[in-house]
Amino acid sequence: MPQKSFAVAMIDALAHSLKTDPNVVVIGAHSFLSDRGLKPEDERALWDAFPDRLIDPPTSEGVCTSLVTGAAMAGMRPFLNYGTATFAYEAFNQIMSEAANVHSMSGGQLRAPLTLHMYAGIRGGGAGQHSSSPQAMYANAAGLELVLPACPADAQGLLRSAIKSDNPTVVITHTRLLSMTGDVPDGDHTVPFGKARIAREGRDVTIVATSLMVREAEKAAETLAKDGIEAEVVDPRTIVPLDVETICASVRKTGRLVTVDEGNALCSIGSEISAQVAEHAFDALKAPIVRVARPPVPIAFSPPLEAHVTPNADKIVAAARKAAQPR
């Protein structure tokens, strides 16, 4: 299998989509393609191949979202890249009220097959306005699919599925994943929505993590293994739809659950996973669920303050030890 970076894997998904569907158009192409580790000749070839379908718009997130929603309703399959996730807040009405509602409000007559992509996460010095992990908000919209790829193969496969999906789909990439490399299957690789990935098998504690936190959970699992605690790391890959079955099956095996989510702990992805497990696998739990997430505070600029609130492998290890304590 070829090795490639997360960023290049996503670009390959986009290239496959552009080649196979003339209705695919990319708005915000420059910040998605440039300086992302693509060979300069490959980047040039893409711009040359699709001069009318790779578009660099004004800094106008609101209307760009209306544009892709309107274009999707009228038969296109657009991909919109916002850059930093907070920039999409400029378009919250268009995402939450327009795109998310199109299909339902029309009684199923209309559809908006569009993909909204953004770079999120605590990335180092982002301060209050460039450190958001807004995934839970989009999960809460009703009508949006939500995708959180955590490795290069899934980045390519899930993005491909996002563009093929007939629903509006939000894809959130943690900025610190972009340079991660890994094996990606050859050709037009796709990964279905709603199927969790077991990133590491274990019998003692289930760690459900998303996005960058999967990597941190894997690191934590290495540390825990040295103490004889075998952690199972489950990556749901998509939050909407959510593979509750795989998560609960893992908890039934281990009896213990840690959720890891870089978003604000309050009403988070971790909250939802905890609730699902409490509802569907309560009898299997041998200890209280432990959530690892950012505390509900705006992220400060100062490096030690940022580090203090950023979930990481050490915090996951501590949480897993707590969850795995004999009772």
Partner: peptide, 8 residues
């Protein structure tokens, strides 16, 4: 107090 940084 270090909370805003260069941007804020």
């Amino acid at each position: 107090g270090g909370k805003g940084g260069t941007w804020h």
